[in-house]
Computed example of a mutant assay.
Amino acid sequence: MTTKKELRNRIKVLKNEQNKKDWERTSDAIFAQIEETESFKKASSILAYWSMSDEVMTHKTVEHWSKCKKVYLPLINGDDLELVRFEGTEKMKPEPVFGILEPTSDDKVDICNIDLVIVPGVAFDNCCNRMGRGKGYYDRLLSESVAVKIGVAFSFQIVDNVPVDPHDVPLDMVVTEAGIINR
């Protein structure tokens, strides 16, 4: 069985081999599929993420969705994530650890008030298991959530088996440019 460290390294190599010029178009295709789901249509509050350079691109989608739904982004606070409303790129600042832009709004929400969660990850499998970067931020947060949990990934991030620990939280679905995987 592949270890999480080995799998993270393998996906990193695959990411570096990709043509990143295609990532915006591919990311748009992923989010177009999400917008067609009942879970998205019913959701009034969404937790998304502000993508880093090696993730499914969310910037355009977050800005678009925030015009018709309450969109929240995670803010790192110690070992946990705070959920802060996205109110436009002019109200964002880089956080000190990863340099990710984070919202500066005072409008915060508890995870129990989120209808839909869009989750990044390093790798996913066909059982909707997710492997993140190893800090456990999302697993701690998702363990408290009853929201629909959707992982977003490029097709090359889908693997046969993601190593799973007892604290890992499976998702309800994973969406790639090739389609939707349901649990």
Score class of each variant (00 low, 15 high):
K60G: 00
K70T: 08
L116F: 09
S66G: 15
K12S: 14
F40P: 01
E35T: 13
I180M: 10
L73R: 07
P166A: 08
M173A: 14
K70D: 15
D107Y: 09
D139C: 03
N9L: 09
E177R: 07
E24N: 13
A29W: 04
N126H: 15
D125N: 11
L83K: 05
S51F: 06
V159H: 02
W65N: 08
I46S: 04
I100R: 04
I114E: 02
P170I: 06
K67D: 11
V62E: 05
V97S: 13
V62I: 03
E102D: 00
K67T: 09
N126R: 11
D110H: 12
E63C: 00
V162R: 10
G132P: 14
Y49M: 05
S51A: 11
T2V: 06
C128R: 04
V122D: 13
V146I: 08
M92T: 12
R10A: 14
S105F: 11
V56Q: 07
D165I: 07
S155I: 05
P170C: 01
Q157I: 04
I76Y: 03
L81P: 15
W50I: 05
S53A: 12
V148W: 03
L47Q: 10
S155R: 02
E17C: 13
D125F: 11
G132Q: 11
E36Q: 14
F31E: 07
E35I: 06
D139M: 01
F98S: 11
F31Q: 06
W65P: 15
R140K: 05
T58D: 10
E17V: 07
E36R: 12
E90P: 02
V162Y: 09
D172N: 14
S44E: 14
V175A: 07
I111D: 13
D160M: 02
F86A: 00
S105K: 04
V164C: 06
S45V: 08
E17F: 12
V175H: 04
Y138A: 01
C68N: 14
L101K: 09
T89A: 13
R25Q: 12
G78S: 01
V97E: 09
K12F: 12
S45W: 05
K20G: 02
L171W: 05
M1F: 03
L116M: 08
A43I: 07
E38N: 08
I150H: 03
K4A: 07
G151M: 04
V164P: 07
M173I: 04
A178E: 15
S66P: 14
D28C: 08
